[in-house]
Nucleic acid binder design. Structure first.
Lengths: 149, 149
DNA sequence: GTTCCTGCAAAAGATTTGCAGTGAC
DNA sequence: GTCACTGCAAATCTTTTGCAGGAAC
């Protein structure tokens, strides 16, 4: 039900993809890739900045947005918007690690989930849709156990 | 595949829900409800303002945001975020009219779709999730026929 | 050495809030 | 007549952009 943190070779794959796309390997990019690789769920730009400032090389907000844009363009990162008007980012993974989101609309709590039935339905649907599909995003809104009381 | 515009009693239901929740029936609220009832798909605050200014009573941006917040709180409107960092709003409908979204990430084109298999999977999942579910949102990203060429 | 990458500060948007006038009941 | 609703303008917050110095190749 709940996916675990992945420390696969995602960061390495992503770095390779960047190189192939003609990008250089700056410090900000490396720090961001490493951070994202450790996350089990999506982070906002603000959260990324805080996390980087605390634990390793600080990175400016502008660079975060620029790098995320590049990473999204080459398809290794996905933007997700979960209802608070804030954009979040997460590593695109296939198989394990791939997940969707439960959001508590009262307290803002965020939780990842996976569901094989849903993925099958999406996969079937993707073939019949007038779109060359890249990624999909499923968000379930509600009240979490604490807030529903 | 593509849902049609609904001109059900949604606006009336929503107006009743507002009254029950203790709200009065101002001009801005009425205009917004009528507009939303006619839409087949989600609108941004900006689009709502333009549409209202052209065809009927003009409504200020601030009022649009305030009204949408109320409508969302009583559960008749849903915020949807489709990847351009812009919040959109649409009427919550059950059965016909209920739909999800295809987004072309290149040109921004937005198209609604429905899928029974997906709804069944979501419905089964909703019972097993640690959340009192209110609404769900599915977004499929990709390149539309025109852009994919 | 050249070209790309970053940070800083300013700009551009979207959304929210304070306040005063208007309208619903 | 009272209290809620609305518009306007200002404030806040997120994201983008311009520019100059520093880093990768």
């Amino acid at each position: 039900m709940t996916p675990t943190t992945q420390r696969s070779g995602w960061a390495e794959q992503a770095a390779r993809a960047l190189t192939e796309a003609g990008y250089r390997r700056g410090g900000a990019r490396r720090a961001i890739l490493e951070l994202l690789d450790e996350q089990a769920c999506a982070l906002s730009a603000q959260e990324i900045q805080r996390a980087l400032g605390g634990r390793r090389r600080a990175v400016s907000r502008a660079s975060i947005y620029r790098v995320m844009e590049e990473l999204e363009a080459i398809g290794v990162v996905q933007r997700v918007e979960l209802g608070q008007g804030i954009v979040r980012y997460e590593a695109v993974r296939r198989g394990p690690g791939h997940h969707h989101h439960l959001v508590c609309d009262r307290c803002g709590r965020l939780e990842p989930f996976t569901d094989a039935g849903l993925e099958r339905a999406i996969s079937r649907l993707s073939d019949r849709v007038p779109l060359k599909v890249s990624v999909h995003e499923i968000v379930i809104h509600g009240a979490c156990r604490v807030c529903a009381r």
